[in-house]
């Protein structure tokens, strides 16, 4: 049942992709996403795809995982494809009947959109596959910490993420228990229409919320008892160090990303207008 849900899928490993400093990894992922939308031509998209395929290969993430990640996206992909095919009417007409007219431009545009969305999802997925949630939280805190001088709650945000990660399995287990208990009293949680099901969730949600509040309260007391007083003057057990190798890998990646950006100009020079 609920217990089987896995959260923040992480595939531990020792590949260069895994070992890259998480801060650099986050920044590179963001850069990749941005570049995906700048690189607006065939060559750029090809490099983007090749780049991510290579990364997955290096990280030894099974292709099955990619498919599982993409499955929920299918409706969106189909929807955008249809939209692009019907509404982009530029270029040579390929098929035409009744009011439907599919053009070369439409097909090209649709393919480009599919590749971008897939690369976006698969690329950001790689970050969570190769970085454990704790490390990720740490990295986010450290990346955002310069902003805390401007009043941005970087430490608080990271602490919230940590506690959420810690409590989610506990609360899932609890939900499971409450559902069993209410079913034992004859509650019907898996049958009936949408409205009925939503209403049937009340006996599950109320105890769950109360429990979450109670836990939050107790956890706060326990944290205070262990001298918690916010982020000021706090040291960390886990230290992040950027090594020479990290810079090297990053430099390689930056070059690839630069190539994607430059591909626009290259294609123009070669005479392939977008």
């Amino acid at each position: 049942m609920l217990r089987d849900i896995t959260l923040g899928q992480h595939f531990p490993g020792e590949s260069p992709v895994h070992r890259l400093d998480p801060r650099l990894k986050i920044l590179l992922t963001i850069a990749y996403v941005v570049v995906l939308f700048i690189g607006d031509n065939v060559l750029g998209l090809c490099i983007s795809v090749a780049f991510i395929v290579l990364m997955y290969f290096l990280a030894k993430i099974p292709p099955k995982v990619i498919w599982r990640n993409l499955k929920p996206l299918l409706p969106i992909l189909i929807f955008t494809t249809v939209l692009n095919l019907f509404f982009n009417q530029s270029g040579q007409v390929l098929v035409s009947f009744w009011i439907v007219k599919i053009t070369m431009g439409g097909v090209f545009y649709a393919i480009r959109m599919i590749v971008r969305i897939v690369c976006l999802v698969v690329g950001t997925g790689l970050l969570t596959y190769t970085t454990s949630p704790i490390v990720l939280t740490d990295a986010i805190e450290r990346l955002l910490s310069p902003l805390s001088k401007l009043g941005f709650p970087a430490h608080e945000l990271a602490m919230m993420m940590t506690i959420a990660l810690r409590m989610i399995p506990t609360l899932i287990e609890e939900t499971d228990k409450i559902m069993s208990a209410q079913k034992a009293r004859g509650a019907e949680l898996d049958t009936g229409g949408l409205l009925q099901r939503v209403r049937a969730l009340v006996p599950v949600l109320i105890p769950l919320f109360l429990s979450a509040f109670r836990r939050a309260d107790e956890l706060a007391t326990a944290m205070e008892a262990r001298c918690y007083r916010g982020g000021d003057g706090r040291t960390r057990l886990r230290q992040l160090h950027i090594t020479g190798r990290d810079w090297l890998y990053t430099a390689v990646c930056v070059l690839v990303l630069a190539a994607i950006v430059l591909s626009n100009r290259l294609m123009l020079l070669a005479g392939f207008g977008v």
Binding site: I134, T162, L165, L219, A222
Partner: peptide, 8 residues
């Protein structure tokens, strides 16, 4: 359960 903060 309500006094352990970290995930490791």
């Amino acid at each position: 359960d309500n006094q352990i903060v970290a995930t490791v």
